[in-house]
């Protein structure tokens, strides 16, 4: 089955009001080209579930978001995401704020078709008091109370991988695939942008196949976009773009806000965008961060 498509074709399959999971972590390996295609679309009222970075900030600032399910939204080296911060401080979005591990449990529950996973995480904190939808339940096996972390069922997930074949076998060769396998499993449809399209026999080498973290049946669409994670990193191919993130953060203080940023960079296509940020070679030359 050939699942190759364009970013526009993938985004055309999304609908207003959907719950969308976004893979990656903060400023790392986010499917930013797909996020940019949403920014170019009429989509709105989305619920976004993510270990958030500029993906969440941009979608909030562009008025695409009704609700964010998050444990953090951060650019790491710039701790506070400027546009998420604005959205929260203006009260313009609903939120479900949970612990990082609770998000993992919610994705697992959705993946496994169960309504919740019991956990101690969240007890005694405002995660419980501020989320009336998250129930605290009795255990049939002991006398303690437990948080019933509900399944986070996703209508669609967006993920960026290093390599994929057209059948949807996706490889993440960077050191961490984060929770992307669970985002793929928890979603009805999963769209994966990749830096490089490869032939299926690339995975005949077990060392390469070892870095495939979900089955191709979980992949709905494959969208080859070299540099598609920019300005986030795609280790080992390129790091995150520090000057670009600084400019993005600074734009939140300008009168024009996100519109100024989008006018300068977004363009009508990913080709436009990459030209506006200096081209693919410049993206691929960005040094990996040292932690």
């Amino acid at each position: 089955m050939n699942k190759q498509m364009t970013a526009a074709q993938a985004v055309a399959q999304l609908r207003d009001g959907m719950t969308i999971g976004i893979g990656g972590w903060g400023p790392r390996r986010k499917p930013m080209a797909l996020v940019r295609e949403i920014l170019r679309s009429d989509l709105k009222e989305l619920t976004v579930v993510a270990y958030g970075g500029a993906d969440v900030g941009m979608l909030c600032a562009a008025g695409k978001v009704k609700k964010v399910v998050f444990a953090f939204v951060s650019l790491d080296f710039i701790p506070l995401e400027p546009y998420f911060r604005k959205a929260r401080q203006s009260g313009s979005i609903e939120v479900m704020e949970i612990d990082e591990g609770m998000m993992l449990l919610g994705l697992r529950a959705a993946s496994w078709g169960i309504p919740f996973i019991p956990t101690e995480v969240g007890l005694g904190t405002d995660i419980i008091t501020q989320n009336p939808d998250i129930k605290v339940i009795d255990s049939p096996y002991d006398d303690k109370e437990w948080v019933a972390m509900p399944a986070l069922k996703l209508d669609a997930s967006l993920i960026h991988a290093d390599k994929a074949d057209v059948r949807g076998v996706c490889q993440i060769a960077g050191p961490d695939h984060y929770m992307d396998d669970w985002f793929a499993r928890a979603a009805a449809k999963t769209y994966v942008s990749c830096d490089e399209l490869v032939e299926t026999d690339y995975f005949h080498d077990p060392a390469q196949a070892r870095m495939v973290h979900w089955e191709r049946s979980m992949t709905t669409g494959v969208i080859p976009i070299a540099g598609g994670a920019h300005p986030t990193s795609c280790s080992p191919l390129y790091g995150f773009d520090v000057p670009h993130f600084k400019a993005y953060t600074a734009s939140a203080k300008d009168d024009e806000g996100i519109q100024g940023y989008l006018n300068k960079y977004l363009g009508a296509s990913e080709d436009d965008y990459q030209r506006n940020v200096g081209g693919l070679d410049a993206i691929r030359a960005i040094e990996l961060p040292s932690y």
Partner: peptide, 20 residues
């Protein structure tokens, strides 16, 4: 909570760390 004066990082892993 719906409109905080200053939004910071979020709860991150603190809930889980603190009880685990």
């Amino acid at each position: 909570y719906d409109k905080p004066k200053v939004m910071m990082l979020g709860a991150r892993g603190f809930p889980g760390n603190s009880i685990s």
